[in-house]
Amino acid sequence: MIYPLLAMVAFTFILLFTGFVMRYRAVSTGEVSLGYFRLVSGDAPKYLQQATRHYSNLFEMPVLFYVAALICVLYPLEGSLISGLGWAYFVSRVAHAAVHLTYNNVIHRMLVFQVSNLALIGLWVIIGMELTG
């Protein structure tokens, strides 16, 4: 489970850097003023709003993934099902980002988000059964 965990952390840092590049671009082209970022309020280009919102998303449900992954590493809970669910979660979050940050079809985004949630629920069910059984 350590590899899906490290992949998710690396992906989060990649999106942090991507967001910085988008913010720099928006300021340097005059699409927003530097003052916009004081409170992140006012009008901003859609691509910047999407990137900012998506980065915030990475600190909502993925927090439960991080906790689950740490539990698996610390206890240690291993196996192909746990590893598979960890990778399924990671891949579905990458797919979610790809949809959200490109063509942003809400239905497609919702579907990959639900796949990630199912993987996360499955992971927690297994953890619960292993730790209480």
Rank of each mutant, 00 (worst) to 15 (best):
M1A: 05
M1P: 03
M1L: 08
I2C: 07
P4D: 01
P4I: 00
P4R: 00
L6I: 08
A7H: 02
A7Q: 01
M8F: 11
V9M: 10
V9R: 02
T12N: 11
T12V: 10
F13V: 13
I14Y: 14
I14N: 07
L15Y: 02
L16N: 12
L16R: 08
F17T: 12
T18H: 14
F20K: 10
V21Q: 14
Y24V: 09
Y24R: 14
R25S: 09
R25W: 06
A26F: 02
V27W: 02
V27M: 12
V27E: 09
S28E: 13
T29S: 12
V32F: 09
V32T: 10
V32D: 08
V32K: 07
V32S: 06
L34Y: 09
G35R: 09
G35I: 00
F37D: 01
F37P: 01
R38Y: 12
R38S: 14
L39S: 14
L39M: 11
V40N: 13
V40F: 12
G42I: 07
G42Y: 07
G42Q: 10
G42P: 06
D43K: 15
P45V: 00
Y47K: 07
Q49W: 09
Q49V: 15
Q49I: 14
Q50P: 00
A51V: 06
R53K: 13
H54N: 15
Y55A: 07
Y55T: 04
N57E: 11
N57K: 02
L58K: 03
L58Q: 12
E60M: 08
M61C: 02
P62V: 00
P62A: 01
V63E: 04
V63R: 03
L64S: 08
L64T: 11
F65G: 04
V67I: 15
V67L: 14
V67C: 09
A68I: 00
A68H: 00
A68E: 00
A69E: 04
L70K: 03
L70F: 13
I71T: 11
C72E: 07
Y75R: 15
P76Q: 07
P76L: 05
L77Q: 07
E78Q: 13
G79E: 05
G79D: 06
L81Y: 05
L81D: 03
L81M: 08
I82K: 00
L85T: 07
G86S: 06
A88T: 14
A88P: 03
A88D: 05
Y89G: 01
F90M: 06
S92N: 08
S92A: 15
V94D: 01
A97D: 08
H100L: 06
T102L: 05
N104H: 15
N105W: 02
N105T: 04
V106L: 15
V106G: 05
I107N: 06
I107W: 10
I107K: 11
H108Q: 08
M110D: 05
L111V: 14
L111N: 07
V112W: 11
V112D: 05
Q114G: 08
S116Q: 03
S116N: 01
N117R: 13
L118E: 00
L118R: 01
L120K: 01
L120T: 04
I121E: 03
L123I: 06
W124T: 01
V125Q: 09
V125T: 10
I126L: 15
I126W: 04
I127F: 04
G128A: 05
M129W: 10
M129D: 10
E130F: 03
E130V: 13
T132N: 12
G133H: 09
G133W: 08
